[in-house]
Amino acid sequence: MLARLGREVAGRAGIARFERLIGDLPAQEGSEVVWSVRGETDAHGQRFLRVDVKASPVLMCQRCMQPFVFPVKVDSRLQLVASEADLDPEGGLDDDEAPERILGSQRFDVLELVEDEIILALPYVPKHDVCPSLPAALDADSDTGRPSPFSVLSQLKKN
């Protein structure tokens, strides 16, 4: 009904409400998730949901093992389909431009959809851009002063 009537629902929820999201994350300090879901119908009668989400979960950096806030901003368009057979794209080929498809229903949990979108937006290996506590010796840009063991290969390439 949301998509058919072009309605919008929006709200705020504490990040602690999203149990699947925070299950394996460090302690979350009262962060809020701001979300909106708007229904749309195109000229061909296809129905869509536009999902906008802003959140700031605390993740654990996999490089320095320190917690950090990871800002998440999601703006996705999901196509609603009537049956599970319609979930697969025509011809079995994935089109990068085509929206993701989800099974539409008269009733579904909007917050569960919001939680799914946040989970999908999280990095597989979370890490700081620059770790504040990483020793300089482990810095990726540090130069050890030794010649590269591969510099010999460049000489062979010239011959």
Rank of each mutant, 00 (worst) to 15 (best):
L59W: 07
V51W: 00
T144P: 03
I22T: 15
K157T: 06
D139I: 02
E100A: 12
D96Y: 12
E84Q: 12
P132D: 00
S36Q: 03
K158N: 12
A16F: 13
Q155Y: 07
Q155H: 14
E29L: 08
R77K: 15
D24S: 13
P147N: 09
E112N: 07
R20S: 06
V33H: 10
L113Y: 02
G6C: 07
W35R: 00
F70Y: 14
I102E: 05
E40C: 04
L78G: 03
T41G: 02
E29P: 05
E90Y: 09
V33R: 00
Q79D: 04
V114G: 03
I102T: 08
P126L: 02
P26V: 04
L122I: 08
V74S: 00
R50F: 00
E29T: 11
P26Y: 05
Y124F: 15
E8T: 13
W35E: 01
R17D: 09
K158C: 06
L134A: 09
R50S: 04
E84F: 06
R77H: 10
V72N: 01
G6K: 07
E90V: 11
L78R: 04
D88R: 15
Q79G: 07
M60E: 14
E100T: 08
V81W: 01
D52F: 09
L120A: 13
S105Y: 03
D96E: 15
W35D: 00
P99V: 08
V81S: 04
F70R: 08
K73D: 13
S142F: 13
P132I: 00
L134I: 01
